[in-house]
Simulated assay, not measured.
Amino acid sequence: MVKKIFKIVRWTMALLFVSSILAVVVYRFIPVYFTPLMISRCFEQIEKGEDIKLYHDWISLEEMPPSMPLAVMASEDQRFLIHHGFDYDAIQQAARAHLEDGKKLRGGSTISQQTAKNVFLWQGRSWVRKGLEAYFTFLIELMWSKQRIMEVYLNSIEMGDGIYGIQACAEEHFGLDAKNLSRLDCALIAATLPNPRKYSSKYPDDYMRRRVRWIDRQMRPMKPFPAEH
């Protein structure tokens, strides 16, 4: 009986391993139209008795304004192009601030980690989910280009209530196609990303405007985001 259980567990683990790699390979080439977060948000809306709100339109990185990748890097992950999925300097700084000043520990989550979480995993803070996040981050950094990671990130990240991706955000909050967003529009969208359900690019407050100015200053010395080779 024990051997039978062990065999089932072994084959289950092998199946999960193979399917995870296959999913990463497939998403290297095809658009990501739905994510676990989108589905869970829909269920939350149903539980609250609300109408389902799901706005999402996939576009290629070439159809996005050049300022958009720079804005999210300036805001979220300035070492994106040089790290391999994990920004150890940011993690150390966050841990040091927590130990020295008692500040709330921040994870130093990179764009790669956020992409892995958004596309393949559920929301939460358990050690199991964090371990799987690290695993999928390693896989996408190994199998995808930085351009593909950025493309998936900007198409899948939550940017408002029921709004996912840059094209849907541009349409719902600015009345534009994403390609027509200005540099400051991109900085404004990036400024919402720590908490897009609290901060709105459609109705920015004073804090948001200060964030936009800071992001814009960070963007100025940055080189254009590199095209796919």
Rank of each mutant, 00 (worst) to 15 (best):
49 G>T: 00
72 V>Y: 00
54 L>Y: 09
105 L>H: 04
47 E>N: 10
127 W>R: 10
32 V>C: 00
50 E>V: 10
82 I>M: 11
73 M>S: 01
48 K>L: 12
101 D>R: 14
37 L>M: 11
25 V>L: 09
40 S>N: 13
124 G>L: 04
46 I>E: 06
17 F>S: 14
72 V>F: 02
109 S>W: 00
49 G>K: 02
69 P>M: 01
83 H>W: 10
122 W>D: 07
127 W>I: 09
93 Q>K: 12
130 K>C: 03
117 K>W: 01
16 L>I: 13
27 Y>D: 05
26 V>I: 10
129 R>P: 00
79 R>F: 06
28 R>I: 12
47 E>T: 15
44 E>C: 07
68 M>E: 03
54 L>K: 08
34 F>H: 11
105 L>T: 05
21 I>A: 09
102 G>L: 08
23 A>T: 05
58 W>A: 08
126 S>M: 05
66 P>M: 05
106 R>T: 10
93 Q>N: 15
79 R>H: 07
56 H>N: 09
24 V>Q: 01
17 F>K: 09
104 K>P: 14
95 A>E: 13
15 L>Q: 09
28 R>P: 08
88 Y>C: 15
116 A>M: 03
43 F>L: 09
14 A>F: 04
120 F>T: 01
81 L>T: 05
109 S>A: 06
112 S>R: 02
41 R>E: 11
96 R>V: 12
75 S>W: 00
100 E>G: 15
44 E>A: 10
63 E>F: 12
95 A>T: 12
94 A>M: 15
91 I>V: 14
68 M>P: 00
59 I>K: 05
114 Q>E: 03
42 C>T: 13
128 V>S: 12
97 A>C: 13
46 I>F: 08
109 S>M: 02
36 P>M: 03
23 A>Y: 00
78 Q>M: 13
100 E>T: 15
40 S>L: 11
118 N>P: 04
33 Y>E: 14
122 W>E: 08
84 H>P: 10
128 V>T: 11
21 I>N: 06
74 A>F: 03
38 M>I: 06
123 Q>V: 13
86 F>M: 10
49 G>H: 02
116 A>P: 00
115 T>W: 00
91 I>K: 11
17 F>H: 11
48 K>W: 05
98 H>V: 15
22 L>P: 04
84 H>Q: 12
54 L>E: 03
23 A>L: 04
61 L>F: 04
119 V>Q: 00
102 G>R: 10
89 D>L: 15
100 E>S: 13
70 L>G: 00
129 R>V: 01
105 L>D: 15
45 Q>I: 08
106 R>W: 10
93 Q>R: 13
90 A>C: 11
19 S>W: 08
50 E>K: 15
21 I>Q: 07
51 D>A: 15
68 M>V: 04
102 G>A: 03
14 A>S: 12
35 T>Y: 00
95 A>V: 14
129 R>Y: 02
87 D>H: 07
24 V>S: 01
119 V>G: 01
26 V>T: 08
